[in-house]
Design a binder for these strands. Structure first.
Length: 554
RNA sequence: AGAUGCGUAGCAUAAAUGGUAAUGCACCGGAUUUUGGUUCCGGGGAAAACAGUUCGAUACUGUUCGCAUCUUCCA
């Protein structure tokens, strides 16, 4: 049902205008991926726009694989694409289609056009065809094949289908207008010969329809009322409409919107593939990749991706969205849903000199202050702890609310401690910090009256589990690595995009944590248990850091 | 150069029969806080340019400028 929102995007305005004239109109959209690669952040937008628009008006969305080019497509991709869309939270139910299912119908459509004198077989070489098309400024020229008889065209086209001609020797073209200022109307190719094995139709066909003679027709066959696509197809629309008119089929309507670009991310399948093939990333699901599988492995929640698309909106302007917005959506979601735990990424030992050696306190820790229903857990506190190395300074400035000689600090869910001394090695590196604790300052039952501005996270040295953490930075050092005419995008590859911390310490409650689990490492950021993690070797991926208002002076 | 589309704060998206513009993120400040998180309060900052119509234009018209796309037997 159409929910009442304050503002409509331009597509919704078109739909509501149509609905006003024709109240019975069904809103039916489709998501049409080509199964030749993995879905990425750009597809997320397309998926959201198509599914959400239909949902808003009580309509349906089909999943249709646009598999008209056997050279690059494969079933392997089909399964991954389906998995990604489902994970994102969208359901196409039983409406799963393939353009290749329509090859028979498409062939008949082509014959119909030939019969109407609106399509012809061209024997020219690709070079000649390109040359005859002219350029945007100058009209193209009509060649000798353009006026073949309907009978000859029908015969030739059938023989193309029957495999009588080699690849590239002939094509079927629509007879539109060789002088059109729109290059796509200069007798566009409808069919080409490719003696290739198709992932679904096998060797049944050796002629395959081009995008322009498959997409719109598939839309019509499925009764798609709104074919929502990206701006680059704008020039195809006159052709899209031309085929519908001449074929006299269901008048699907194409509406173009601007694709989404996100700073520091790239969405070219070819370029993404190069990163994988060159071994710069570990695979399509490397957490640094802008693929859905990569973002999932990194710990981005599907809900955050959907919110992100909603906040970005839909328009026709070229755009590059700042990555802060995406990360903000991720934090917002994770803040509500994740358990807080303590993990020390860069440990330095703290010894509490007035705490008995064999004593262990059981401290109560709230799992999520945002959600009481998530309960609490017990964590051990003992004489030797680890804290974050950067939480101690030998000679701290005033605004440093952490530990320093003589200073008090609250250990989260623990006691207030006072730094009495510290030990350095020959290189001047601090190896141990000595403190005393205030026994009456225990968290939750503090009667000490002592004030401590800073709060630190910690783990008990004798109980903590050693684990690995992987921190990620932007994959590229430039916001738009592919937008430089004079430079290759690989020049901007960030060789420091992955930072592995082989020996962090996490609290013992994480011992059996399973892959995919999302957590907040207090004061350190949101982390996700990697898909390759095991109890023997825990691996955590940093999803996103926490915001911080602490700005140390330079 | 030809055609088409687009140009609202740093980014993105809105609203307004034509009546000096709002929201989110970012940024700055403050309050709260046993996460320098969260939450709350406040702040600065925008109509590409010019001309025309008009009492009044960011919205209409025109010109200019800028950006994008199109000349794959890819989609």
């Amino acid at each position: 049902m159409s929910e009442k929102t304050a503002s409509l995007n331009f597509i919704e305005q078109i739909i509501e205008d149509n609905l006003e004239e024709n109240p019975g109109l069904k809103v039916h959209t489709r998501f049409p991926p080509e199964p030749n690669g993995y879905l990425h952040i750009g597809h997320v937008k397309a998926i959201c726009v198509n599914f959400e628009t239909a949902k808003k008006y009580g309509g349906l969305t089909n999943l249709r694989f646009d598999d008209t080019n056997p050279t690059t497509e494969d079933t392997e991709f089909v399964d991954n694409i389906k998995k990604d869309i489902k994970w994102l939270g969208y359901d196409w139910e039983d409406r799963e289609y393939f353009a290749s299912d329509y090859f028979g119908k498409l062939y008949e459509f082509a014959r119909k056009l030939i019969s109407k004198g609106l399509a012809y077989v061209d024997d020219s070489t690709p070079e000649k065809i390109a040359e005859e098309k002219g350029s945007p400024g100058t009209p193209g020229v009509e060649n000798e094949y353009r006026n073949r008889s309907v009978e000859e065209n029908l015969d030739l086209f059938e023989r193309m289908k029957n495999g009588e001609f080699p690849d590239g020797s002939r094509v079927l073209r629509a007879k539109v207008d060789m002088a059109s200022p729109n290059m796509l109307l200069r007798d566009p190719l409808m069919y080409r010969i490719k003696h290739e094995h198709h992932h679904r139709t096998g060797d049944e066909w050796c002629i395959y329809p081009m995008y322009d003679f498959a997409h719109g027709q598939s839309d019509a066959i499925e009764g798609i009322s709104y074919s929502l696509c990206s701006l680059e197809f704008m020039h195809h629309r006159p052709l899209y409409d031309w085929f519908i008119e001449k074929l006299e089929i269901y008048p699907s309507r194409q509406i173009e919107f601007a694709r989404m670009n996100v700073a520091y991310m790239i969405t070219s399948k070819r370029k993404l593939k190069k990163l994988v093939e060159d071994g710069l990333v570990t695979g399509w699901d490397d957490p640094r990749m802008p693929t859905i599988s990569g973002m999932r492995r990194k710990g981005f929640p599907a809900a955050a991706l959907r919110t992100f698309c909603d906040k970005v909106g839909v328009a026709k302007r070229e755009n590059v969205i700042e990555i802060d917005l995406l990360e903000s959506c991720v934090r917002d979601e994770l803040n509500k849903t994740t358990a807080r735990v303590m993990a020390v990424l860069d440990p330095v030992k703290v010894v509490i000199t007035n705490y008995p050696e064999d004593k262990v306190d059981e401290m109560v820790a709230v799992n999520n202050p945002e959600d009481e229903s998530m309960g609490s857990r017990i964590i051990p506190f003992s004489r030797e702890l680890y804290i974050e190395r950067k939480d101690f300074m030998e000679d701290p400035p005033k605004k440093f609310f952490r530990l320093g000689p003589g200073r008090n600090v609250r250990l989260k869910n623990g006691y207030i401690i006072n730094c009495t001394d510290f030990v350095k090695d020959d290189n001047g590196i601090v190896t141990e910090i000595r403190c005393t604790y205030y026994p009456d300052s225990k968290s939750g039952e503090d009667t000490s009256g002592i004030k401590a501005k800073g709060v630190l996270h910690w783990v008990s040295a004798g109980h903590a589990i050693k684990a690995e953490a992987r921190l990620y930075n932007h994959l590229f050092t430039d916001e738009t690595p592919t937008a430089h005419e004079d430079r290759d995008f690989m020049e901007f590859f960030n060789h420091e995009s992955l930072e592995v911390l082989p020996a962090i310490y996490v609290e013992p409650s994480l011992k059996e944590v399973s892959p995919g689990t999302q957590l907040q490492f207090m004061r350190n950021g949101y982390f996700c248990v990697d898909s390759t993690s095991s109890p023997e070797k825990l691996i955590f991926n940093q999803t996103v850091n926490l915001k911080s208002r602490y700005k140390p002076k330079k």
